[in-house]
Design a protein around this nucleic acid. Structure first.
Length: 441
RNA sequence: GGCCCUAUCGUCUAAUGGUUAGGACAAAUCCCUCUCACGGAUUAAAUCGGGGUUCGAAUCCCCGUAGGGUCACCA
């Protein structure tokens, strides 16, 4: 059996779309699973709408996702007109294509129409089984604007053949294009590739996802702080799954499991909440250092500077934020302001949740301060602090000890628990803050 | 409208003729608890409808219904 070759042929007429990414992913997974290859080409026959800016965006997006195979050898249809012309002449020579009326798009040139044999075309779709179309309603469709300007269907057929594509895996919106392409490829004497039309990603209203539904460009997800591992994992499971109950997969695992037989037939609604869950899970799998550098890079990308204490609060950030964007936001709005040199403590807040009077609070804070002071230098960890303080707090009433302690250390109504705070701030700063808070009472 | 495709909890899905129809997200409740999170437990929630085939149907067939895709000198 010949080597499996799939393809990803975006047209550079917009930013990399989330739906394109999933199609690319399925092509990638299928090729990789079968030790094959995914080829890449830009379908820019529509010169009006195609832009270099979009080409760059698509390449950058694919690279970021880790799906780029050979971006250096990008093929552009606009650079292959000789190849198309050659085949166009063959079609005309055979009498299966002919010059018709003058072109609207390029005045002076005649459009080329394909002489429709008006018959039924049946193909086996690897996802849907046998599909039959009657091509009669297509009429003699236009295959080129002129001798030099092929249209999509012609270019696709020639390129897929020329690039030795064995499997055409694309969105279901292309299923009715297949009949035209089969007609052309047979007229040219090419071998048919295998076809697989995968279900579309739908917006919550069950229609094709588009800009009016929110984010469709992969850039927007990147900007929100989603990471490639999560996006790929989520997208792979939209319309496919390996059958078990496992949901978290690495790219390698997806490659190992992927088969077209298990691709669904029905469209799947894109659920941002579930994507967030996947993102959180993949973020949790990162080491402290990996998380730190990812967040740092993310913040810099958005013109923000990560604080130098970032590494210390990674564990907290990681369990709170589902996306890097949420982590950056938490930092921006001061959720971790207690890590700064100076904090302000509101005396009222100190007693607010303590369920006891100021005198008791003051006494409790003093006891805690002494407990910490008694600890040998460098011994103040969250666990260690909890070990000595928690029994005392339980004995005299936790709210009366832990709430004021937490507020004294953070100055905030909401924060990580006081033991974590002690571990983060260290002995010296903690003692100083407790002392300052006591003064306020 | 023509043609094509599709149909399991709100959502993503498992179960490829025999299960109390399972899991996950979201929701609700409870636990943990000094707050916010995290985490743990529990609950509610589905086979679109009607006919067949079969001892037995979510699963196979037919008819409805509903939804989607597509009908360019765009891709």
């Amino acid at each position: 059996m010949s080597k499996v070759i799939t393809r990803f042929p975006p047209s550079p007429t917009g930013y990399l779309h989330i739906g394109s990414v999933r199609t690319a992913l399925f092509n990638y997974l299928f090729a990789a699973h079968n030790n094959g290859e995914m080829v890449f080409r830009f379908e820019d026959t529509d010169i009006e709408r195609s832009k270099v800016e979009f080409e760059k965006d698509i390449i950058a997006g694919m690279e970021w996702l880790g799906l780029s195979l050979d971006a250096a050898n990008v093929v552009r249809q606009s650079e292959r007109t000789d190849l198309y012309k050659k085949h166009l002449d063959i079609l005309i020579g055979k009498g299966v294509a002919y010059e018709a009326e003058e072109s609207e798009a390029t005045p002076g040139a005649k459009v080329i129409r394909f002489k429709n044999p008006n018959r039924k075309v049946t193909f086996t779709d690897l996802v849907r089984g046998e599909v039959t179309f009657d091509t009669t309603e297509l009429g003699d469709f236009v295959v080129a604007r002129s001798h030099d300007l092929p249209l999509y269907h012609l270019a696709v057929v020639i390129d897929d053949h020329d690039m030795n594509v064995t499997h055409v895996i694309r969105g279901e919106d292309h299923i009715s294009n297949t009949q035209r392409q089969i007609l052309l490829l047979e007229a040219l004497g090419f071998e048919r590739p295998a076809y697989a039309h995968i279900p579309l990603i739908l917006a919550p209203d069950r229609t094709k996802m588009s800009k009016r539904h929110g984010a469709v460009s992969i850039n927007e997800y990147r900007a929100q702080g989603f990471i490639p591992e999560a996006i790929l994992n989520y997208l792979a499971l939209l319309g496919w799954n390996p059958g078990g109950e496992q949901e978290l997969f690495t790219l390698e695992e997806l490659v190992k499991e992927f088969t077209l037989e298990r691709v669904h037939k029905a469209g799947a609604i894109f659920d941002i909440e579930k994507l967030k869950w996947f993102n959180h899970e993949h973020l949790k799998k990162l080491s402290m250092l990996e998380y730190e550098s990812k967040l740092k890079e993310f913040m810099e990308r958005h013109g923000e500077k990560a604080p130098d204490y970032l590494i210390d609060i990674v564990p907290e950030l990681r369990n709170r934020a589902q996306t890097l964007g949420e982590a950056a936001e938490a930092l921006r709005v001061g959720e971790f302001s207690f890590m700064e040199k100076d904090i302000t403590v509101d005396p009222l807040l100190l007693v607010q949740g303590a369920k006891t009077d100021a005198e008791t609070i003051k006494k409790n804070l003093t006891v805690v301060k002494e407990m910490i002071s008694a600890l040998p230098e460098g011994k103040l960890t969250a666990e260690g602090a909890k070990e000595i303080i928690f029994p005392y707090a339980t004995e005299v009433g936790r709210a009366g000890v832990l709430w004021p302690l937490r507020v004294a250390l953070s100055g905030k109504e909401k924060s990580p628990d006081p033991f974590v705070l002690l571990g983060l701030l260290g002995k010296e700063v903690s003692i100083a803050r407790i002392a300052e808070a006591s003064q306020l009472l």
